[in-house]
Design a protein around this nucleic acid. Structure first.
Length: 207
DNA sequence: AACATGATGATCT
DNA sequence: GATCATCATGTTC
């Protein structure tokens, strides 16, 4: 993948909670093109978010559907907090909470295009291909050194894990049904940058 | 029992 | 290169 010379990348600046849309599907769409940053052990791990999914109130696929539990507690924090959970015996998933405190909505970060700290990401992932470093939610979490210790962290609170502004322009954003769920599977709550090679799944899923 | 997945290897193009 | 089936894995309520 060759980067055109006229695509100048700027350094990301920290986004404030004020910048985040208050309605969760709008937040999921807003996050496409923004920069996910984890300043980790002296290295900056940064990537451009290219795929997200929203999980809402009254949504049978949402972890909050049956109310607050010890696991999903941070999903109920005010918009802009990290909700990290462990799934399938192997993978962490990174979400950003949405809505006012007590709501229980969130956005799953499903894929990112690596920008900075790529060698460290390769080390964390134990694999070489750039395209596979953060293509999929489990891979993204591994590439960005996300684990339970980051559950509940405020993305807008000056922590090492934060949300940055876009470093270059964003392409067309497309919508589809969410991936890998069985309940409320028809709702169009997945957002991705159309045609981007770092979006998860098959070719059809990035068209 | 179910789960917001990914690595692997087979089989196609 | 793309796509598909198979299956390993720990936590949750």
């Amino acid at each position: 993948m060759v980067k055109p010379l006229n695509m100048k990348e700027k350094a990301p600046r920290r986004l404030k909670r004020q910048d985040l849309p208050k309605v969760t599907p709008a937040l999921a769409r807003y996050l496409i093109g923004k920069t996910l940053v984890h300043d980790w052990k002296g290295t900056r791990l940064a990537g451009r978010i290219v795929e997200t999914e929203a999980y809402l109130v009254g949504d049978a696929a949402a972890h909050s559907f049956r109310g607050e539990t010890p696991r999903n507690r941070s999903l109920f924090l005010e918009r802009g907090h990290a909700y990290v959970y462990f799934i399938y015996g192997n993978h962490f998933m990174l979400n950003m909470s949405g809505g006012p405190h007590g709501t229980g909505e969130g956005v799953l970060l499903r894929a990112a295009e690596p920008l900075e700290g790529i060698d460290k990401m390769r080390m964390l992932r134990g694999t070489e291909p750039l395209r596979d470093l953060a293509r999929g939610p489990g891979r993204l979490a591994e590439a960005f050194a996300i684990d339970r210790s980051l559950d509940g962290v405020d993305f807008c609170g000056g922590a090492d894990l934060w949300l940055g502004s876009a470093v270059r322009s964003v392409g067309a954003i497309a919508t589809s049904v969410r991936i890998g769920i069985t309940k409320d599977a028809h709702r169009p709550l997945r957002f991705y940058e159309r045609g981007n090679q770092f979006v998860s799944g098959t070719k059809a899923m990035r068209r």
